[in-house]
Nucleic acid binder design. Structure first.
Lengths: 273, 273
DNA sequence: TTGCTCCTCACGTCACGTGAGGTGGC
DNA sequence: TTGCTCCTCACGTCACGTGAGGTGGC
């Protein structure tokens, strides 16, 4: 018979852990002195303690350990639990390896440029959404070409949607497709809408497809100055081993009269890794 | 201005998370309606939310994130935090990889033999300890040769320690060293002792060195039947990619009159990985 | 009226670590 | 008397998830 302290030393565990295992029924002392409440453990209980610690070290929860020890699991069941644990460990290692890569990318930016790495970029999925849109050609992907075109389109579109009896359900979305003649691009000015007539209006209603993976950054201020933000985003994509899959979408989160107070989310689609 | 639900959707976080970040001061809404308590967020706050999520995804705690965002950390400080995080991630990946190896070793045992793998084996450090000991030669490492010798030694040793006025402070330890003539071995029957005279008694007092890494298993029953347990231990050492570094120590945890109720821990030293 | 969104508590999670406050034997 | 070990609460950890119970506008 060992006292709790002696037993803890032999088993390389804390006294607190033994009390915890007692209270949860995982490992009850062989005897408890009724007068003092002192716990006494038999040497043979060391085998069970070792089993508990070994399974715990594999990363099983105490509840799982209890099941494995008390339910007399079969070899086949044990195999199932180990296979599950293997999968969990693998995905955890993969996730941590990914994290490590991102940490290292940021460290490289600091080492090589001595500047603060961008930390406000998110990779996320952009869900599909139904929009009403008008399109127009732009000569080049520069703000000075795009802004006038897009402003005109949104002005018309808003009115037409109202006239069609439909309602706008969220912030405006602009996106770009290559021009059919290979020169410049087509800008799409879109507004999310709910139901409504399928035709009989000058705009088109289409379903923007989901973007599986987009790198996003929030741009503050007039879109006339968006190039720097796009550059930060492009740089980040490169540094982190992603690849762009086309023109970015622009989500106009806030568009007050003062253009310098605009807030826009830039959503650049990424090639699947 | 967005309601908490809209803001949560744009930021790909739960409403509960935004409330949590509000309550901890990490991200306060731009405005709270005094009458209803409704939270309203400005589009520009999405940048901060993105920073929070990005840093959290790297594995920083919310407290660390708060420091990084609110204390205006310098590039150098950011580098320090990233270097620290890199080290944490590396060691976590290493630990999980180790765990994964152990899980896979157990799975191999099941696949190849269809039997339950041993789960009561622990790798642990055995601390140094001062003992009084007597030694004797044995012809071979078989129980039938060892038992009579060791029993005699312990009988003598116990009496001699008492006569020397010393006290036994823990369970008996037996260990083996190769015989000088290369034939058989020397068995050491040792008992942990506290202080006492350095000489003037027939036994030797020595300090058993620490064992950095020992694979241990608890043997139940008479030591006459210890071979099977030793085999399990040896098999485990091999399966898990360790290597034995010599004869095992035996720690006699419980030695009642009925030899079948003995409990012994076998401690096999391992070569450092 | 029903649904939807918003609100504020407040418990639960997981495996203990860490006091606080007290006892019993050398 | 001082140290040491033992005991029983009970809070704290970390970042929310998940009800419970209630409100306000379409």
């Amino acid at each position: 018979m060992f006292t709790i302290g002696e037993f803890a030393r032999h088993g390389r565990v804390s006294v607190r852990m033994l009390r915890h295992y007692d209270s949860t029924g995982l490992l009850r002392p062989a005897r408890i002195d009724p007068a003092s409440g002192y716990r006494f453990y038999a040497a043979g209980q060391l085998a069970r303690l070792n089993r508990i610690i070994a399974l715990k070290d594999l990363g099983f929860t105490l509840d799982q350990v209890r099941t494995m020890l008390d339910q007399e699991v079969s070899t086949e069941q044990m195999r199932g639990m180990l296979v599950l644990r293997r999968a969990e460990l693998r995905s955890q290692i993969a996730a941590d390896t990914q994290r490590l890569g991102q940490v290292e990318a940021r460290l490289r930016v600091i080492e090589e440029e001595g500047t603060m790495p961008a930390i406000d970029i998110q990779v996320k999925k952009i869900p599909a959404i139904r929009v009403a849109e008008l399109t127009g050609p732009v000569a080049a992907m520069e703000p000075e070409f795009i802004t006038p075109v897009i402003q005109g389109l949104y002005g018309d579109l808003g009115m037409q949607i109202r006239q069609a009896g439909m309602t706008v359900t969220g912030p405006a979305i602009a996106y770009y497709t290559p021009a059919p003649d290979g020169d410049g691009a087509i800008v799409h000015a879109a507004l999310p809408v709910g139901g409504g007539p399928a035709s009989g209006h000058p705009f088109e209603v289409i379903d923007l497809p989901e973007i599986g993976q987009a790198a996003t950054i929030v741009h503050h201020g007039s879109m006339d100055n968006c190039l720097a933000t796009f550059q930060v985003l492009g740089r980040w994509i490169e540094d982190n081993g992603y690849q762009s899959a086309g023109y970015a979408r622009e989500l106009y989160l806030e568009c007050p009269a003062d253009k310098d107070k605009w807030v826009t989310e830039l959503q650049e689609p990424l090639l699947p890794a």
